Simulated assay, not measured.
Amino acid sequence: MAHVTTQQLLITGAAGRVGTLMRPRLARPGRLLRLLDIAPLPAPGAGEAVETLQASVTDLDAMREACAGVDAVIHLGGLSTERPWEQILDTNINGSYTVLEAARRAGVPRVVFASSNHAVGFHPADQGEAADYLFPRPDTFYGVSKVAGEALGSLYHDRYSLDVICLRIGSCFERPLNARMLATWLAPDDCARLLEAVLAAPEPGFKVVWGISANTRAWWSLAQARALGYRPQCDAEQFATELGDMVGEFDHRYLGGPFCSPELDAPKGEAEQEAS
């Protein structure tokens, strides 16, 4: 079966770190990138096939309009670190529902959901390579929101036949920032390769895929990602000498690294502050 051609692509959270890294890397001749974020986005450059929209992923009407006519949605939008529960619930969990529901109503056939390694962060790190579809064991409210997003993706596939691919992303930065990232790094170029692979895969259904580069010290399986056509070309090992052993106690114990530390306990929301 021929690969799917993605001519119009909606990216939520396009002003964030990963969205900013992906904007030039996902540009293709004949492809329109529709970029959405609650934050302002840079205007299109000369010859750049880009539309920019300022809206929240929690606004169903705005999301339905944004989804009109696109071939796929890459859902990167949301809070990227731990926050009070009510903020996570609204932006990350309700936002993911809204994106999927808007895609369904607009007839978009495929959604790529940016999940996270923090959906399984409290799994011990000393149990060998973490398998694909590792059972959820979130390390934070943020991690819970990624589990919820994966569950919603499963529902929308089974109930509405929407193709949903959930990427449990490791650490997507231009270069690894610490020794933990020697295992978890997803190079931006490899991130783009992974996205292109899951966008092009014919009839993937519902999938949960680890998102890392071909790291020598990788903790997580790439079998499912490779089965979908992903061919990573980067390895964090080139940075090993300069990074040394800058790894804390919790980095060693759990897959979620510092997100499992007591210091990252969720800040209290307004209701909790009033009750305390």
Results as ranks from 00 to 15, higher is better:
residue 10 L to K: 02
residue 11 I to N: 00
residue 11 I to K: 01
residue 11 I to V: 14
residue 12 T to Q: 04
residue 13 G to L: 03
residue 14 A to M: 06
residue 14 A to W: 03
residue 15 A to Y: 15
residue 18 V to G: 05
residue 18 V to Q: 12
residue 19 G to F: 03
residue 20 T to Y: 07
residue 20 T to N: 06
residue 21 L to C: 00
residue 21 L to M: 12
residue 21 L to W: 10
residue 22 M to S: 10
residue 22 M to H: 12
residue 24 P to M: 06
residue 26 L to P: 07
residue 27 A to V: 08
residue 27 A to Q: 15
residue 28 R to I: 05
residue 29 P to Q: 12
residue 30 G to R: 06
residue 31 R to E: 12
residue 31 R to K: 14
residue 32 L to V: 15
residue 32 L to K: 15
residue 33 L to A: 13
residue 34 R to P: 09
residue 34 R to D: 14
residue 35 L to S: 08
residue 35 L to H: 12
residue 36 L to W: 02
residue 37 D to R: 08
residue 38 I to D: 15
residue 38 I to P: 08
residue 39 A to R: 15
residue 39 A to T: 14
residue 40 P to C: 13
residue 41 L to F: 07
residue 41 L to R: 10
residue 42 P to H: 07
residue 42 P to I: 10
residue 42 P to R: 15
residue 44 P to T: 09
residue 45 G to L: 02
residue 46 A to L: 10
residue 47 G to A: 08
residue 47 G to H: 09
residue 48 E to P: 06
residue 48 E to Y: 02
residue 49 A to W: 08
residue 50 V to E: 14
residue 51 E to F: 13
residue 51 E to D: 12
residue 52 T to G: 10
residue 53 L to R: 13
residue 54 Q to W: 02
residue 57 V to S: 04
residue 59 D to I: 07
residue 59 D to F: 05
residue 60 L to A: 00
residue 61 D to H: 12
residue 62 A to I: 11
residue 62 A to Y: 09
residue 63 M to H: 01
residue 67 C to S: 09
residue 67 C to H: 02
residue 68 A to C: 03
residue 69 G to F: 09
residue 70 V to S: 07
residue 70 V to L: 09
residue 71 D to W: 06
residue 71 D to K: 11
residue 74 I to A: 03
residue 75 H to M: 00
residue 75 H to F: 01
residue 75 H to I: 05
residue 76 L to Y: 02
residue 76 L to M: 10
residue 77 G to H: 07
residue 77 G to K: 06
residue 77 G to L: 04
residue 77 G to V: 09
residue 78 G to C: 07
residue 78 G to R: 01
residue 78 G to T: 06
residue 79 L to A: 00
residue 79 L to H: 05
residue 80 S to N: 13
residue 80 S to G: 14
residue 81 T to I: 13
residue 82 E to G: 15
residue 82 E to T: 09
residue 84 P to R: 08
residue 85 W to E: 13
residue 86 E to A: 05
residue 86 E to H: 15
residue 87 Q to I: 00
residue 88 I to L: 01
residue 88 I to A: 06
residue 89 L to F: 11
residue 89 L to R: 13
residue 92 N to W: 01
residue 93 I to V: 03
residue 93 I to N: 02
residue 94 N to S: 00
residue 95 G to S: 08
residue 95 G to M: 10
residue 96 S to Q: 05
residue 96 S to T: 14
residue 97 Y to F: 13
residue 97 Y to V: 04
residue 97 Y to N: 08
residue 98 T to L: 03
residue 98 T to G: 03
residue 98 T to A: 03
residue 99 V to S: 02
residue 100 L to D: 02
residue 100 L to C: 00
residue 100 L to G: 06
residue 100 L to I: 04
residue 100 L to E: 01
residue 101 E to F: 01
residue 102 A to Y: 01
residue 103 A to F: 06
residue 104 R to Y: 10
residue 106 A to N: 03
residue 107 G to Y: 13
residue 107 G to N: 14
residue 110 R to N: 10
residue 110 R to Y: 11
residue 111 V to L: 00
residue 111 V to R: 02
residue 112 V to P: 01
